[in-house]
Nucleic acid binder design. Sequence first.
DNA 1: CTCTCGTGTTATGTATACAAGAACGCTTGA
DNA 2: TCAAGCGTTCTTGTATACATAACACGAGAG
Lengths: 226, 226
Amino acid sequence: MRGDNPNSKSRAVTLRDAVETEIVTGALKAGERLDEVQLAARFGVSRTPVREALHQLAASGLIEMRPRRGAVVAQVSPDRLVEMFEVMAELEGMCARLASRRLSDQDKEALLLAHRKCQEAAHHGDADKYYYENERFHHVVYRASRNQFLAAEAIRLHNRLKPYRRLQLRIRGRITTSIAEHEQIVTAILDGQGAAAQEHARAHIVIQGERFADLMASLNHLDEVS
Amino acid sequence: MRGDNPNSKSRAVTLRDAVETEIVTGALKAGERLDEVQLAARFGVSRTPVREALHQLAASGLIEMRPRRGAVVAQVSPDRLVEMFEVMAELEGMCARLASRRLSDQDKEALLLAHRKCQEAAHHGDADKYYYENERFHHVVYRASRNQFLAAEAIRLHNRLKPYRRLQLRIRGRITTSIAEHEQIVTAILDGQGAAAQEHARAHIVIQGERFADLMASLNHLDEVS
DNA sequence: CTCTCGTGTTATGTATACAAGAACGCTTGA
DNA sequence: TCAAGCGTTCTTGTATACATAACACGAGAG
């Protein structure tokens, strides 16, 4: 639309990313309806590319498309959320385990850097920065697995869980605990202790899943009240 | 198109499934071009639904869409294939581990039945039947994990690996070995030995991955020659 | 007063027309 | 004869028009 990218597919990516960002950041809330005409008008395109973007989002699980009844932002039940975190934990654990065996010097540096930045953000009490650096840290671990397919799948699921992850930083003391868990993961990976790295990474996510489930349950309760 | 299903979305699903089946069964070979107009004509619809189906297939990874250059059946490199099997192994292991902890009476019965049917097919030397029953067996394990999201992801990846899985049955003695591995998995799950179940299931897939990588390498070699 | 049925409106699904880029071949020159 | 440049043609990407299903609102009957 705005020629910000010479790549011919820039528009489609832009449109998809824009809607995705709005969902992930919470600008579009769960269950909210996504009107094709409205989106088309807002982005200055016709319904056709909008529909394609929505289908892509549906494929990634961020939205649900009910035939003849339009698209809505996916409403994830607490049960399903727990399941998703369970899988995320396994993927993270796998990444950590593989990383501990295959760690290159580059990945080692990247890992230490990302960990240090997390610590800095936590030290300054900057929740938003920690959120960002935490994401970088996890992506570094994914890449360090030296399994591109795994990394892509991990990022996909990570993105899908983003909206819930963001909520979690509100929990008092979570950042401090999170840093300590990162420390254990990093140490195990650097020491080449695959099993330990896997378990620490798994636990790190499982804990988040449990916290989120609690949060979700309470949020749902609030929704019912309001 | 043919009113074989009153559901309004039947056409889209049918179209997607049809193309997917052709890819999975090898009717459409890797790298082959998918012409929108041609597909539209073949299925008696316009390009619009064809494009949507292609986008869905691209999202699931079965085809690749290069901007302005059309869609081709995804060409998976041996490296990438090994990576995918590595992830599949982890998911299968996870399913087996969870199943061993959460096994319901229903799932137990289904597991034993599926295993028995595999044995029968193997006993009769019916490779096609074994292929089918083997798939059922794995699906039973996925479901027994009592994690619907995990099961869905496992099925998704399983489907994506189908074309390669099919090739693998050609390997002499593979079916017998496969059955023995199933036996170990079933026993561990029934005994509630999570770690053992996970490891057996993982190994079961890792072995396949290695076999397939060998096959792929030799097939690619043949391609180059021809 | 409530429930149900019917009609009108709105939005989705599909078809078709148009725009633009990429592949291919042809011509022309060396 | 070969290579390079240009134009044609074919295919994709987008817009728009039309068909049809779902929803909402209102009227009428019980």
